[in-house]
Every structure is written in C-alpha cells, then in structure tokens.
Amino acid sequence: MKEVKIESTLYVYEAMEELPKEAVSLMHKAFEARDKAYAPYSNFNVGAAILLDNGEVITGNNQENASYPSGLCAERTAIYYAGSQYPEAKVVRMAISASSKNKPTLSPIPPCGACRQAIAEYEVKQASPIEIYFMGKSGKIAKSESLANLLPLVFDKSVL
C-alpha cells in the first residue's frame, strides 16, 4: 500500500480592498446577481458572475422550487448559460457571493459539490484553469487558481 497526499492551495483576502481590480468588478456583479436570487425556502441567496475570454460577463443566481430538487444553484445557472450562448468561449474567472437571511455569512462559502462538478466539466473542456473567488455576504474572500483545488479528484470524460 502507498499513501497518497492531496493538497490544495487557496489564497485568502481579508477584505474586498485587497482584491485585484478585475476581481472586485466581477464580485460586484455577483452581489447584484445574489440580490436577485429566488430563495424563498432556504433564505440563502447566492450570486455568481463569470468572465469569459471574449470579455462577456455572465451572471446567475440560485432559483429554488417547492419541489426542492428542481431548483438550480447560481454557479450552474451562470456556467450553463455561458456554455449555451458562447460555446467557444473560455471561462477565465468566476466570482461567487452567498448570504443568508437566517444568520451572518462572513466567511468564504465555496460552491457545492454539484457545482464543482459542473465547473470541472468546463475547465476540462477548455483545457485551462478557471480562477474562482468566493465569499459570504461580506468578510474574507478565498481565491482558487483552478477548480482542481476545490475538486482534486475530478470525474471527467477521460474515464468514460
């Protein structure tokens, strides 16, 4: 038997003022999307903004449904729209912000597992990393230089 160690690297910024300008602008788009989320059941609003290599910015937010599995997360709403409208464009950067009406969200909130898998599909397809910034409503912001840091053992087409 051999032990295999998997490591991930994240960068944590204390506040928005520390982020690069291009990330601040994208995070503000994520805030705008978050504030338009439809989350009457969880009271947990999420917004995502994606910068494509053609300069387009795509936003998405979570959309809930009384039949819970029928809803969709912000990250998948945005990335699927980007894929359907700009199939040849590469995703350069993603910004995500989440807030709760039930409690403060002051620490970085990463994408859920299903969203990580969806983002992985695009990162593998384009053969280049997607930079991801994520945070709560306010406070610290985490940055991953690639989805691979958030989902190191990715399931992709190579195993099919």
Rank of each mutant, 00 (worst) to 15 (best):
T105L: 09
T59S: 10
E64S: 09
P69E: 04
D35T: 10
K29L: 12
A30F: 02
N62I: 11
A89Y: 01
A82Q: 05
S107V: 15
A49G: 08
R34T: 00
F31D: 06
N61H: 14
R76S: 15
V91C: 07
A23W: 03
K90I: 01
E75H: 11
A78D: 02
H28C: 02
S99V: 00
P40D: 12
I79S: 11
S70V: 03
V24S: 00
P104I: 05
I109E: 12
R116F: 02
L52E: 05
A66H: 06
D35K: 15
L106T: 14
Y68P: 04
T77H: 11
E75N: 12
C112H: 12
E22N: 14
A98N: 09
S107P: 00
L52V: 01
F44R: 09
N54Y: 06
Y86C: 03
T77C: 10
S100A: 10
I109L: 11
P69Y: 02
A82L: 03
S84P: 00
G55D: 11
P104N: 14
K29D: 12
F44T: 15
N61P: 00
L106D: 14
A78R: 09
E56D: 13
R76A: 07
A98Q: 04
I79A: 08
N62W: 04
A95G: 08
I50N: 01
A98F: 02
I109S: 05
Q63E: 12
E56M: 10
R76E: 13
E32C: 00
G113D: 13
N45D: 11
S84L: 07
M94T: 08
Y86W: 07
L26W: 01
G71V: 04
S84R: 14
Y38E: 04
Y41W: 13
P87M: 09
P111H: 06
Y38L: 09
G60P: 04
K29N: 14
P69S: 11
L51C: 01
E56S: 13
I109R: 06
A78H: 05
E88H: 07
I119V: 14
F31N: 06
A74Q: 07
N65E: 07
P108G: 08
S100V: 02
A33S: 12
L51Q: 07
V91S: 04
I58M: 08
V92S: 01
I50S: 02
E75I: 06
P69L: 03
R93V: 00
T105R: 08
A74P: 00
A82M: 05
A89Q: 03
Q117S: 14
I96Q: 04
R76W: 09
P69W: 03
A95E: 02
V92F: 01
K21E: 15
A33V: 03
V24H: 00
S25H: 08
T77N: 15
A23T: 11
T105A: 11
A48R: 10
G83F: 03
S97L: 01
H28L: 08
T105W: 06
R76V: 09
E32H: 04
G55C: 07
G55L: 06
Y80W: 10
L26C: 03
C73H: 12
N43S: 04
A118W: 03
A33P: 00
S107R: 10
S67E: 13
T77R: 10
S97T: 15
C112F: 09
P110D: 11
F31M: 11
T105E: 14
A74H: 07
V92G: 00
